[in-house]
Amino acid sequence: MEHVLSVEQVSAAYGSIRALKEVSLHVDRGECVAIIGANGAGKSTLMKVISGLLPASSGTIRYEGSDITKWPTHKIVAAGIAQVPEGRQVFSELSVLDNLKMGAYQRKDDIQPEIDTAFQTFPILEKRMHQMAGSLSGGEQQMLAMSRALMSKPKLLLLDEPSMGLSPLLVKTVFDTVRRLHESGLSIVLVEQNARMALSVADRLYVLATGQIELEGNAEELQQDPRVRDIYLGI
């Protein structure tokens, strides 16, 4: 069985700064894979490369068998990969509802069911339906960003640091959602600085440091790994 997503020896650079050095990882159907690492490790770069926002200087990215390395972003989105980018990135001058509609930009069918789901999952969004997204709090924006990404009915969801800047309570809410999505069968790649939360939802884990994969393995096993415990869990 082929992987849903297969990143093979991918390198990427910002000018002369090499941000990713021959990174390889894969995601299987229905898996939740977490990528943890310190600031500047290259995690967000990896997300950008997968979504086509940044070009890979070498290597191949395969999605459901197709080589998507050189695909433009809109084609990647059409194939079923959605991303909740780092820092929420909501359209601040559009309303909450319009933001959700933007998430369904490529869809031609009725999007109301997905909007209803979003409001059910996060009732606060329904309350603020016509408010400008820029006026929402950080946590509300995160909920909006996630709902927006789900509007396209993706088969693979990329989450870039969803817990950043949120209070512990909100972090719990966000990860509860991620868990539910995982249970519903969605393939997920989760990038996180918060290793503890990442380990609580992921099946497998990759550790990224200075652009290279340092460790990989089963989430349960790695939780016991002294290196992980020491550096990332602070135990």
């Binding site: 950008k48 809109h74 980018p85 990135q89 509609k101 933007m102 930009y105 490529q106």
Partner: peptide
């Protein structure tokens, strides 16, 4: 739709791309 896409692009280019807006 295109008009709103243009507005979205003017607010946040990369986010608009992630929505599937064809930049070209």
């Amino acid at each position: 739709k295109v008009g709103r896409a243009m507005q979205a692009v003017s607010m946040n280019r990369s986010a608009a791309a992630l929505m599937g807006v064809n930049m070209q």
